[in-house]
Design a binder for these strands. Sequence first.
DNA 1: AAAAAAT
Length: 627
Amino acid sequence: MRTSWADSVASAEAENVGSASSDNNGVGSTARPTKSTYIPPHLRNRHQSSEPAAPSLSGPPSSNDRLGFGGSASGSRIGGSRQDHGRSGGYGGGGRSGGWNNRGAGWDRGRDERLNPFGNDDDASVQEEFVEQENTGINFDAYEDIPVETSGDNVPPPVETFAKIDLGKELNANIRRCKYVKPTPVQRHAIPISLAGRDLMACAQTGSGKTAAFCFPIISGIMRGGHPQRPSRGLRTVYPLALILSPTRELSMQIHDEARKFAYQTGVKVVVVYGGAPIGQQLRELDRGVDILVATPGRLVDLLERARVSLQMIRYLALDEADRMLDMGFEPQIRKIVEQTDMPARGIRQTMLFSATFPKEIQRLASDFLSNYIFLAVGRVGSSTDLIVQRVEFVHEADKRSHLMDLLHAQKANGVHGKQALTLVFVETKKGADALEHFLSMNGFPATSIHGDRTQQERELALRSFKSGNTPILVATDVAARGLDIPHVAHVINFDLPNDIDDYVHRIGRTGRAGKTGLATAFFNEGSMSLARPLADLMQESNQEVPDWLVRYASRAAYGGGRNRRSGGGRFGGRDFRRESSFNRGGAADYHGGNNNHGGNNNYHNSGGPSNNNSGGGGGYGPSAWD
DNA sequence: AAAAAAT
């Protein structure tokens, strides 16, 4: 256990710096810092602090026994930083003034097919020699300890290596380029299930190779199935074969960037569409052909209504952050897309739902989209949030700002190279985000913000500025809570706690990624009473120190948790709701000990899929924290 | 009550 939060931050920073620099050595291309031209108001007309010299590596990553996940996660992290590099290259040419250069620089004039998403130094065969070096020290045996649960009819057995899955030559080359040596647990289980043509509901932490888990089978399947003759209903209508939906624009962009790497030189075309950006460019992309369409719901509905997209040929449907996609705000839109368009019915298309959390009410809704599906839950190495130190502090509303500054100030003093660790600060409201960003900026803390009232340009700029370290503090609403893979976030601060414990789980999952440690601090007060019990339970389950005062509030909290019922039942959705009859309260220990991997095939007999729902109460405590 | 997502 760490003795103070400052130590934790310092340690998290040290690890981040350490691994960042080794990435650079390995890839040899990201050394140049990504510079953003965004200057926070309080820094304008000042000298930019000079870029630090090569940071002295302060201590090797500790607790590498957990790096089993780091192996996989590391792959995607490396991918991420290279992607950043590619982008910054694009910007480098044109400067930062253009709002839409994200698309513009790298995507104009149909060159994307030839454009190498891995960077110019790419060569699959050359990369191979890096693979062994880069993964030295990763304990792949740690994979074996990850609890896995599957249920459903005739679950296909997992695979141990990519070589044992016949994904095709081109895809294999891309897997090498991504430096994925061994499939992650979710990939080992989900890919065979998906290749067998089965529907799937999967719980797995983000950063665990989830995107690849659904992209590989889709790409492989499209290559196998060939490119069928599309109907010629209208010249302007396009007929994608696969649809991937996600709840935020940034997440859609991230999925698209990854999918494009996986599809490189396969002839499979990936296009992303989302709102807030001019539609013209997206239409032009579509006109060039699309096999896999990545989309946010609103823009897709728009395109469907314009008859520019038809879902008639969809063979694969994937929902990322599926529980979010099916909650109150999104459900009607998703239902419209899935059930009231020309999309083939469930059982004809193949449907895959992925999320880190999966409350049972949402599982029930989701089962409408699935046919005789397999439920898969993959946990972390060891207990839940081992890599994330969670702290909760009682801070009155009026004291939050000064308390935040105390934290940030101490962090600054502990900075490994005079630079602040990346800190993500979550607040409840968009106005609150603006106000806090302004406050921090006025007080000498370079901050930016991301929320739904900012323009898409501003959102993307904020994210880049944060990732690059230019503004190492990002104030965010829940728009940034899910799925986003931001390397090197050392500290997540819940300035305002969410009302839903699942949101808390997603938020803190922005740190502690890629096998690194992370710190999560929550400001708790009278306003967050409804979260007292679920938060105390969660922290307890993940072996965190729970303050006495929180335990007292938790025991005082009304039984049933009021409006948190949604998540009160199966907090981490770690169990198939179809099994609720096998009531399993206090099952965390069972879970870890009992349903072990190695095929993890419980062969729960599901006679006929979603209709025989079991709405039994309570139960279903999964292990802690799926991301 | 808030956030996200089309214009």
